[in-house]
Design a protein around this nucleic acid. Structure first.
Lengths: 220, 220
DNA sequence: AGTAGTCAGGTGGTCTGACCACTTTGCTGA
DNA sequence: TCAGCAAAGTGGTCAGACCACCTGACTACT
């Protein structure tokens, strides 16, 4: 993906050039990169500009630098990850709806996974949730409930993605639904989950989301 | 000169100092930061060093710079996004299995979404896939098939996440299943999808994955 | 021969001072 | 009054200079 802005971001161009250079020369992970001075000459920019690009890449974990020795290409997979993620971040999510929808994808998947693995239903967390439901405030319920569900799946990657999406999409779960209603729905969801009824649990979830959504429409 | 033996990464220190400075002065998202020259003087470092730190932060989306105007603290949500992302990136996914499973989460979600939206089933892509199935190699089938499905959902974020997960988990889809078998399964999956049978389509998908997985175990 | 010491060259880390391009501000003069 | 312009301030870039550190070759002594 070319960023194609009015090219005010020189150091971004340099990063791109650097990556294609790495590809061309077949530099492997752990190998040494050309020195800053050589890169500056090769790319026809100042060493300052090269360094700004390198420092950015270093902060992202793409490279590692050792004083007196040189700059080394870091691990492969981090590389790919960061590339796409950072591109996405720069371009900004096209719509908030994408973020919300993707978050819900992970939430549905967690509910499905938990209800289909009987051993996960024996975890003490669920009973704790049930008792809390009758006592406490409903404001944090959603967060706790879903988080615990995803934690139960033991997929840390999914958990992290969900976590960041949640922060990104913001939290505004206090309108358009009363606490009583929400408690009722969540309680039903929890019951269905513990009963191992995937379909019914998902239905509860959808109902819940329908009540809760719609308030975030004019955020952007 | 009070540096530095212990942590030779000056620009990292500067980032930390910058963030505490932001906190102290109560700078809000969207507010203007002190100019590079002022920061250099305040932190008792050169403007070069300040710039290296700022460029790193910019690549992470923490700040935005406008020539002739100044440097601005970026939006809150992006901030969180990047923070979590970078943490994740640094720590590395715990296991390859997480990545595979998360990828499959997105794939299942796409299949479900498409089969439940009749208008998406009218897209010409599917018929194109069907005809290709009888002609070409099966090697790229999986990739094409799944990608088109996710594209059809029009969730760009999910697509990007899937794309990076795919790269991350690597591709080794040519063993443990013959081309003929794979074509048969994919063909069935496609048929079920076009018929709008969510459940059957997902069942096909699971069957497919079961045949294809298991070969990637000793990659890492 | 083998070892310790020295030294030159390369590397990243930092700094200085100087331009450039751009925006805002405010002053000037008609 | 207000259009126009100059100055100041900002980020963007550059060249050149040190510094701290590492490596490797060379030297000199044992």
């Amino acid at each position: 993906m070319q960023n194609s802005q009015s090219s005010s971001k020189r150091f971004l161009d340099i990063i791109v050039e650097l990556q294609s250079l790495i590809k061309e020369q077949g530099i492997q992970y752990g190998d040494k990169l050309p020195s800053e001075r050589h890169l500056a000459e090769k790319l026809q920019v100042s060493r300052t500009a090269v360094r700004e690009a390198l420092r950015s890449m270093e902060l992202l974990g793409l490279i590692k630098t050792k004083r007196g020795e040189g700059t080394f290409l870091s691990d492969f997979k981090k590389h790919q990850l960061v590339e796409v993620l950072s591109t996405f971040i720069m371009q900004q999510a096209r719509s908030v709806q994408d973020v919300v929808e993707t978050r819900m994808i992970h939430e549905r998947a967690a509910i499905t996974a938990v209800t289909q693995q009987p051993e996960l239903l024996l975890l003490p967390v669920w009973k704790g949730m049930q008792s809390k439901l009758t006592e406490e405030d409903a404001v944090f319920l959603r967060e706790d409930m879903v988080r615990e569900t995803i934690i139960a799946t033991e997929n840390r990657l999914s958990l992290k993605i969900w976590f960041l999406l949640k922060q990104y999409s913001g939290v505004s779960f206090d309108v358009a639904i009363t606490e009583k209603e929400e408690i009722a729905i969540v309680s039903e969801l929890l019951d269905e989950m513990m009963a191992g009824n995937t379909k019914q649990a998902l239905a509860c979830y959808e109902q819940w989301m329908n009540r809760v959504e719609g308030e975030r429409r004019e955020i952007e």
